[in-house]
Amino acid sequence: MAASQHTDAPMISLKNVCKSFGKKHVLKDLSLDIGKGESLVVIGGSGTGKSVMLKCILGLLQPESGEIYINGQQVIGMSPVEREKTLRNTGMLFQYAALFDSLPVWENVAFGLMQAHGVKRKEAKDIAIEKLGLVGLGPEMANKNPSALSIGMQKRVGLARAIATNPEIIFFDEPTTGLDPIMGDVIDNLIRDCTEHLGATTLTISHDMESAQKIGDRIALIYKGSVVWVGPAKEIENSGNPYVEQFINGDINGPIELDILKP
């Protein structure tokens, strides 16, 4: 659907990115392009390096080699000041929400507005409450401490924080994990809205095939630190790729090696 709107220059581009921790190679020559205004969903087994990839793009982790471009600009080795500028147009939902537990819920959501965009407290609070409404949290939640919320609620606050400044690029690390099916659907629609109505470029990590197909224009499968398949979301059912087939069917037999003892 939105695939035709993409301009040629990708918004985010990873070229042969390698990242290891000690002897453990997590990302191996990972290359991936995300077009402007595109919604890309990344799927892949647990521990294959999806979150690490996001952190490399955000500059929270430094890859050993490779190139990462955001809006045509090389971001590896960027100065902190330039990085700050780039991140001003970026939102991120962390896998474990990573809410500031010293601040009430609304200040978490309004943080970027107040710190990086100079919005006044009162106005920022109104926006925060509006964004909380979008993720199904009422205004009575605004003054609560994040530690008083359930995990699923914290995740939604994190989501509201990620989209609060209407950024151009948004990363969602497993946005619907731990949510009930109905709330999961609400969040799927919200992410879809970000690309369709706000024109944002989004990269979502998901384990849920149904929501991946709903959110994504394209889907990429990561296995052992590199992309083994990427294609339009509609085509994932008949990709003809053995990795994809095994993954979406949840089959224990196939090319994907599992580190489990088979009986």
């Binding site: 955000l58 929270l60 700050e84 991140l87 962390f94 990573a98 537990d101 943080f111 970027g112």
Partner: peptide, 21 residues
């Protein structure tokens, strides 16, 4: 303890992504 907890729960990473040093 406070900053250490913020580090291990990725709150410091979150600060960075919100353009805050």
């Amino acid at each position: 303890a406070e900053i250490g907890t913020m580090r291990v729960t990725e709150q410091i990473d979150a600060l960075v992504t919100l353009s805050t040093n």
